[in-house]
Amino acid sequence: VGAIHGGIRHNIIPEKVEMIGTIRTFGDEQQALVHRRITEIITNIAESAGAKADVNIGKLYPSTVNPPELTAKVLPSVESAAGKGNVIAMPPVTGAEDFSFFQREKPGFFFFLGGMKKGGDPLITPSHHTPDFFIDESGFLLGVRTLSYLTVDYMEMNKK
């Protein structure tokens, strides 16, 4: 829940309260389950207090998932561009990313370039959309190199 709007004073029960936020999951089935359970729970809590809840859950982004076969194929290109010791296989994260729409049409490889301050720890560096986020633009050169290696190597792998 990113925002709660309701009421004007601490001792007056508001007529209406609105909560807005985001729901992120690792797949379509999990997303459907979470949406169904949230609707059931909110509706039942409201009814138990003699109130009514209107639950509106929009489905904005599907999950962004790299196909394992494609990842295995292109990982050597990424390691070649960045140096093997600089590539970290991350566990799934619940970011919302419109790249997922492209992956619904064609297999795609999504990766994080990084951009933390030199010497930072990638496991504790503040992420996007946080007050402490910082990007070191010198990492853009690595991004161009990595995309170039990926493109050339992928085209070589798929020559007909």
Results as ranks from 00 to 15, higher is better:
58 G>C: 12
59 K>A: 14
59 K>F: 14
60 L>M: 14
62 P>D: 13
62 P>A: 12
64 T>L: 04
64 T>S: 07
65 V>I: 15
65 V>P: 04
67 P>I: 01
67 P>Q: 13
68 P>C: 09
68 P>M: 08
70 L>Q: 05
70 L>W: 02
71 T>W: 06
72 A>H: 09
72 A>Q: 14
73 K>M: 14
74 V>I: 13
75 L>S: 07
76 P>N: 10
76 P>L: 08
77 S>I: 08
77 S>N: 09
77 S>Y: 03
78 V>L: 02
79 E>C: 08
80 S>V: 00
80 S>P: 02
81 A>C: 10
81 A>E: 10
81 A>G: 12
82 A>L: 06
82 A>V: 09
82 A>S: 11
83 G>K: 08
84 K>T: 12
85 G>F: 03
86 N>W: 06
86 N>S: 11
87 V>C: 01
88 I>V: 14
88 I>W: 05
88 I>S: 03
89 A>P: 00
89 A>V: 08
90 M>K: 02
90 M>N: 07
90 M>E: 11
91 P>Q: 11
92 P>M: 10
92 P>V: 03
93 V>I: 13
95 G>H: 02
95 G>Q: 05
98 D>P: 01
102 F>M: 14
102 F>H: 11
103 Q>M: 14
103 Q>K: 06
104 R>T: 05
104 R>W: 01
106 K>T: 11
